[in-house]
Computed example of a mutant assay.
Amino acid sequence: MKTLERTRKSLTNTVTMSSSSAIATVTTTVFEVGKHTTVLQKVESRTTCCTAKASPPLPVPPPKPLLIVMPCEAGEFPLLVFVHGYLLYNSFYSQLLQHIASHGFIVIAPQLYLVAGQDSSDEIKSVAATTNWLSEGLHHLLPPYVKPNLSKLGLAGHSRGGKTAFALALEKAATTLKFSALIGVDPVDGMDKGKQTPPPVLTYVPHSFDLDMATMVIGSGLGELKKNPLFPPCAPEGVNHKDFFKECKGPASYFVVKDYGHLDMLDDDTEGIRGKATYCLCKNGKSREPMRKFIGGVVVAFMKAYLGGDSSDLMAIKGGQTGPVELQTVEYVL
């Protein structure tokens, strides 16, 4: 709470400065790879670990398969739980998660399902179970010199995973650990207003989200446009980033990236039928790298601000240092 209030005051002072103030002179390197070398580790869940080839078996296996991305160097690092989008694999976000981890974070990305219906209740419970597992099981999977700081914990999700992240933050399932920062990456709450998937998250009441944490919503400028007449838009109006941000209380940040689409933060090479479909179903930008770098960078800046008390990079982005992309919307609620 002290970090949240300190960062809120810092950003409040920044907002009230004149346009010729120090913001303009601040630059940020968060859009580039950080100083840490990273490693990706795939971990089987408690339902499959007994048949896994690796031995010995894990003392406390996770409730869902995980992709863990961490710095290789010694240190104590904040954590980010990242929730994948609808019918996507957590591995499709490997480049994005490596970017975040390279700046000094441990990222935990559960694979929630392979096939799913409209109801996301089980996904919310699974993310809660994964979060609860962290305190008893995570240290068994990390090198002894890599220490997780469970008191500095962020939660993020993309698309339907963004909805799931908000639902968990709104306590639609219980967790033993407390989140301090919440990020929705082009979150989607269904097909249209009035066609929300259960359980609905949006209430359409401004600033109604009762969240004791900082929030950030990132939107894609092309997400609400159709790729072709055969498919609906991937982030339809009425249930997308605009609506999520309207319900956030301060401190809340909002960035909409111009000329990039709903899936443009995924890896360049997404394999298999699902991977190929990510290039066909949604309207895309010219390439994925710029969007991926921006999202990785702004997530790092946000986490540094609200988990580490260093708001300089987030201030720089709000002041116009947007790296490889152009933004069509920047808003902030104190």
Rank of each mutant, 00 (worst) to 15 (best):
S126I: 00
V33T: 15
G223F: 06
E73K: 11
K163F: 02
Q118Y: 02
M1R: 15
L177I: 06
Q328K: 15
S220Q: 05
M213T: 06
L141E: 13
S18A: 13
E44I: 01
T278D: 09
H103P: 03
T215K: 07
C50T: 09
F231R: 08
V185M: 15
Y204T: 05
K178D: 05
K193V: 05
P78S: 06
T3I: 15
E224F: 05
E224V: 00
M291N: 10
Q41R: 08
L230V: 10
L67D: 10
Q98S: 14
L225V: 00
F179H: 08
L67Q: 14
T47W: 12
L170V: 01
V201F: 10
S20D: 14
E331M: 08
K42Q: 14
T16F: 15
T197S: 14
P71M: 11
V127T: 06
T7F: 03
K64R: 15
L134R: 11
R6A: 11
V325S: 08
H99K: 04
C234M: 13
E123G: 13
V15D: 05
Q98W: 01
F255Q: 09
S220P: 00
T28A: 07
L138T: 11
L281I: 14
S120K: 01
K147L: 12
I108H: 10
L97H: 05
A165T: 02
A173I: 02
T278I: 04
K163H: 14
P148A: 14
L87I: 09
T175I: 08
Y93R: 03
K293A: 15
S55R: 06
H140C: 13
Q98G: 09
L327A: 08
V256M: 14
K163R: 13
S94F: 00
T37Q: 15
A101S: 15
S159I: 00
P61G: 07
T3A: 12
E123H: 05
D267I: 01
